[in-house]
Write a protein that binds this DNA or RNA. Structure first.
Lengths: 333, 333
DNA sequence: CTGAAAGCGCTTACAG
DNA sequence: CTGAAAGCGCTTACAG
């Protein structure tokens, strides 16, 4: 193990003081051309790379942005993380991810890890952190929340109108002539799941259709739960011609359950998802869905966090959900 | 912005020296019971959480494990990252991810970022980092490479036998009676893609079948390239009854291309993928594929990194690929 | 323009 | 068992 080279080594090598080395590295003050050159050469020769942690300690900042996500491998969160990465690219800040796994205790642990690393700001994706804790946190550092709307920090929350999104998806089916529309909801204690369910109901009722609770089954946002939901649904009735999934993953599961029964999409049954995961385009048929602007939200969160960190003015630009019509929906035959 | 509380504050509050506070926090020496208690209470009262960065600086370690991945949102890398997260869980180490985006310059940048943060070890996923650079890095810290075999560090590389994997997938099709088997390869400059192609050829030739280069088309591991590969293939011939995709994502794309042509899987054409992404189980029909033990590799890499960091003996346990027969393959009719 | 000095928040021999 | 002191690798007033 070679000894790692420090700024002091560079100083000695270049025949200047550490202060001077620091100044040329950070461009924080004028330095005589010849010393400037000597320092640069010494850095080259020694292969020096500054210790970001020490720098952080001295400056009182870590140059890290904490991101509490739920599951690193989730296609949904993955897109948001990608957006954050993109938004931070080119800045001196680097994201540090910690996963909450949709469990309050794990999420608290994630917060602990990040604050122990003295992240300069945080981006929080969904989750169960109590609002007051988030509000408290927001007093001590810049913070953006994606997927929730916290009272008192509306300027720092990025979310779509889930009710409106589900309403659009359901309207789409109604306009195609469907009147018996099933709904696979998310876990209803979840705000987004609840709101999407409201949107579904609103569209149904507004169209003067009968809201049939037998057509509503609850899943947990996983593919597997989509399969199970369809099993439950079919055990009750076959009297429906369309399905609104509360997210894409459950819609994928529903598609499999239909496939197993030899039921064709959209020929026999129309199917709508929610989120617009990358996989939607490659479902067969490609899935009609309500787009959640994951990548955009990630980028926007990063953009604004950076502005906040620089104490510059900012306004968070919210994005809307949007109906993406592909091929899993068709006119009622 | 409240002032953040430090170990010194705790010391003052508890009426002891900073040394003592440090000792009770780290359990690094005996401390009189009453002082021990006082410190714990002070920590509670002040809501103190240690500054991991400062600790790292003092101890000469960062408690971070650098992970260079290619794309954070990729379903393939996502599973590996999840495995790493799981493997590190419960240890004092936290992963820091940096993405190379399959580009040499970005990967170098990722390495720079991680070494600037003085990660204590690294896990490298695939990528283009030159072998000598990896060998050099391995002299200065524990490092595990996933998806490559580097000469001189075989004890620290985790990979499957890609040739063997593709061989198994192709054999499976041959055993089902197929003799006209197309192959959508990955980018052939890529070692894994190349090896998989070799496995395909080997199975074909060993079975005494004709290797027909018209049946081989090159993709780039994305879904979209799978679609395009099928377009290219169909423009040449329709004379095949099975397809081996060099990865699942291209197989998904191929499935869509087949769907668009009204060709049924596996009724008309059998399809085999490679990797066993989570999505395979929800393709319709569920995709027969060759499993790449992503999650296991991630966990194993983390496990061994932890042992190396503690200077304990270790042996890296390699996993094999495995044929997962689902429903996208059938006897030739 | 530049260096000496103090400080960031910890840890760890050292001495008692 | 415990504290004073030095040090980890930087930055930044301060003085010149």
């Amino acid at each position: 193990m070679r000894e790692t080279v420090t700024l002091n080594h560079v100083a000695r090598e270049a025949g200047v003081s550490p202060s001077t080395v620091s100044r040329v590295i950070n461009g924080t003050a004028q330095v005589a051309p010849e010393k400037h050159k000597a320092v640069l050469e010494a850095i080259q020769r020694l292969g020096y790379s500054p210790n970001v942690l020490a720098k952080g300690l001295a400056q009182g900042k870590s140059l890290s942005i904490g991101v509490v996500t739920q599951e690193i491998s989730s296609p949904f969160y993955g897109e948001i993380l990608k957006g954050i990465e993109q938004g931070l690219d080119g800045s001196p800040y680097h994201p540090i991810f910690a996963s909450g796994h949709w469990r309050a205790d794990r999420e608290k642990e994630a917060l602990r890890v990040l604050s122990g690393r003295r992240v300069d700001a945080m981006i929080v994706l969904d989750g169960l952190v109590p609002e007051r804790e988030l509000l408290l946190l927001a007093k001590s550092m810049p913070i953006i929340v994606i997927g929730r709307r916290i009272k008192g920090m509306e300027r720092h929350c990025l979310d779509i109108d889930h009710t409106q999104g589900a309403y659009m998806g359901t309207r789409h089916l109604i306009e195609l002539g469907h009147s018996r529309i099933a709904h696979i909801s998310g876990p209803l204690h979840n705000k987004a799941a609840h709101d999407r369910y409201q949107g579904y109901k609103k569209a149904i009722q507004e169209a003067g259709l009968q809201l049939d609770l037998d057509l509503v089954v609850e899943g947990n946002f996983t593919e597997q739960s989509g399969v199970l939901a369809m099993d439950a649904l079919f055990s009750k009735t076959r009297n429906f011609t369309a399905i609104l999934g509360s997210n894409d993953q459950m819609a994928f599961g529903a598609k499999l359950a239909l496939y197993r029964r030899g039921i064709r999409v959209p020929h026999d049954i129309s199917l709508v998802g929610f989120d617009d995961l990358p996989g939607c385009s490659y479902m067969t048929p490609p899935l009609t869905t309500v787009r959640f602007p994951t990548l955009e939200f990630g980028r926007e969160a990063a953009r604004v966090i950076l502005l906040m960190l620089e104490n510059r003015p900012y306004t968070l630009h919210n994005f809307q959900s949007q109906l993406i019509v592909r091929e899993s929906t068709a006119l009622l035959r």
